[in-house]
């Protein structure tokens, strides 16, 4: 029976497999190969004979690549944990107000169905030095206008603005996932915990979080991958200059795009490929690390 119907299984899988082969596996493999080409010019399809690791050493030593690494890591390591913790609290809070839950859930989910670039442009206005809401808000506390995303903004200010936008933008999906996870937790555990004199904080820490841990792992892996691939948010907030001061907020993906766009220059296409492969390796490493670290802390 099993072997007899095998071809059928493959047939059903075929559309997906073919698409993945064409659009995922082949490009990945191709990028890997190109990243080792010497003096590659894709337009003329010319390259020097042999393979080289030079592209990698050039990329790694590139000032903008270092800047991109710094930006990407800062963004990922700060925004991901903060957004997870925040969304977890919001989801738990939502769960404790059954009546207004659906209403607030809709509100919190709106950013998710809104175009990221549009939201980013709204944020660009909010963070505007002269007529932004954010500075207006700060002025109530006597804070002088701050340049968050303009040409005089410091790296820290720009990163703060980017961070706030990224966290806000990523909350929606996480809240949705956690809220649905919470409804799946048997209410009796909470009754039992109350009988066992557990405080609200203890219940959150020792019942809710462990019981949600598979979802927390899922969310932390996917949002880590998402944060490492940050690009949309930069374009949305800072435009194509990639920063108040050009390229201040460059990320790895932005770096790859820039070099890929300049493919007419000798070797740039390979630099872009090398950058992409490095990002791939970094992502793989972090995902692996998260899986290993979580093995002891996730309860299925």
């Amino acid at each position: 029976m099993e072997t007899k119907n095998n071809w059928r299984a493959w047939l059903y899988l075929a559309p997906m497999l073919i698409l993945m082969a064409v659009f995922t596996f082949y490009p990945l493999f191709n990028a890997f190969i190109i990243s080792f080409y010497k003096d590659y010019q894709p337009l003329l399809n010319q390259r020097a004979p042999g393979m080289t690791l030079d592209n990698y050493s050039i990329v790694v030593n590139n000032y903008f690549f270092k800047q991109a690494l710094k930006n990407t890591f800062t963004l990922a390591f700060i925004s991901v944990p903060i957004s997870i913790v925040l969304s977890l609290f919001i989801a738990v809070a939502l769960n404790s107000i059954p009546r207004l839950k659906a209403f607030f859930q809709t509100i919190f989910f709106l950013p998710y169905v809104t175009n990221g670039i549009a939201v980013g442009m709204a944020f660009a206005v909010i963070f505007h030095r002269n007529y932004g809401l954010f500075n207006q808000f700060l002025s109530w506390f006597g804070v002088a206008p701050v340049d968050w995303i303009g040409s005089t903004a410091t790296w820290g200010k720009q990163m703060t603005a980017l961070m706030i936008f990224t966290i806000w933008d990523s909350l929606a999906f996480k809240i949705l996932v956690f809220a649905s996870g919470l409804t799946n937790i048997d209410k009796q555990y909470y009754d039992a915990a109350r009988i066992d004199s557990a405080s609200k904080w203890t219940i959150f820490k020792r019942i809710t979080v462990p019981l949600l841990s598979p979802l927390i792992l899922y969310i932390s892996i996917t949002s880590m991958i998402g944060a490492l691939k940050a690009y949309n948010s930069i374009i949305a907030l800072f435009g194509e200059s990639l920063g108040g001061r050009p390229r201040d907020m460059i990320t790895i993906v932005a770096f790859v795009y820039q070099y890929r766009a300049d493919y007419a220059n000798i070797g740039f296409y390979s630099y872009a490929a090398a950058g992409a492969i490095i990002l791939f390796m970094i992502t793989l490493a972090f995902t692996g690390l998260q899986t290993i670290v979580s093995r002891k802390r996730v309860h299925y």
């Binding site: 048997d186 009796q188 555990y189 009754d191 039992a192 915990a193 020792r206 019942i207 462990p210 019981l211 841990s213 309860h299």
Partner: peptide, 8 residues
């Protein structure tokens, strides 16, 4: 159904 905490 006892409501034992499954992760403990």
């Amino acid at each position: 159904n006892y409501a034992l905490y499954p992760h403990m």
